[in-house]
Design a protein around this nucleic acid. Structure first.
Lengths: 126, 126
DNA sequence: GTCGTTGCAAAGCGTTTGCAGCCTA
DNA sequence: TAGGCTGCAAACGCTTTGCAACGAC
């Protein structure tokens, strides 16, 4: 059966993900990883992300009007902020109590995601 | 400048949206509206949704791994539940306090969305 | 040497757009 | 009648897949 091999391209992609302090789009990861592997193609990025997702090492973050972002899974519980000015997605530490309590009777809640929308500090300063 | 006209197809799409008790995908809306207008095309659904969104009458709901859904805007403040079994997106009444408080200093929060993930009542019963 | 991985290009899928004819106001 | 709206098909952007060459083990 399938074995995961450690290749230069995969290492470059994983490194780009690990170093990022916010969720990254596949295109952003491609640009970063190409510093290591110039001939890297976007398909390889998508394939690596798919494998990493299957292993549970990265998770997808999706916000309306923005291409899907990816981040490493083991960053502790946190949420996201979407700046409507620069369109970047940021990580937000912390959570709130009682989130699971709003589900209707009979619904089994296993996880939750909170996405704040507004203007980030950098954009608000301008 | 542009005037909005009331057509059979637009009425059918709005009606499908209004009657739904959960966010609907464009394909679902097409299927429902075709009961009224059999020759209705998907492009018309997208155009109607775009116009309705511009007027603020409908909003998009996006959850990872699911096509974009749409719901009417004037349903009061609520959130969503994504069933990982049947993949449907449900409406969830209620909210929690302190959600905006988790944003970092300098970030201006204007809105928020909460998406619960798990198994809906119908699927859990099976 | 084996077989998973890669880069390239083509295919897929959801969404948008161009266009000629239609229909509301 | 004017000009927005429609259905169709082509175009679009993001993502996945087929394939032959490549390279990790």
């Amino acid at each position: 059966m399938a074995q995961e091999r450690s290749t230069r391209q995969r290492k470059a992609i994983e490194q780009a993900l690990t170093r990022a302090d916010r969720p990254m789009t596949p295109e952003e990861l491609l640009a970063l990883a190409q510093a290591e592997v110039p001939r890297l193609g976007i398909a390889t990025v998508y394939r690596a992300l798919k494998d990493l997702r299957d292993e549970g090492a990265v998770v997808a973050v999706e916000v309306p009007g923005h291409p899907t972002c990816f981040e490493t899974a083991h960053r502790g519980h946190h949420h996201h902020f979407h700046c409507r000015s620069c369109r970047k997605v940021y990580e937000v530490q912390g959570c709130v109590h009682g989130v699971h309590g709003i589900a209707p009777k009979g619904f089994r809640v296993e996880d939750h995601e909170i996405v704040l929308t507004g203007v980030c500090a950098a954009c608000a300063a301008r």
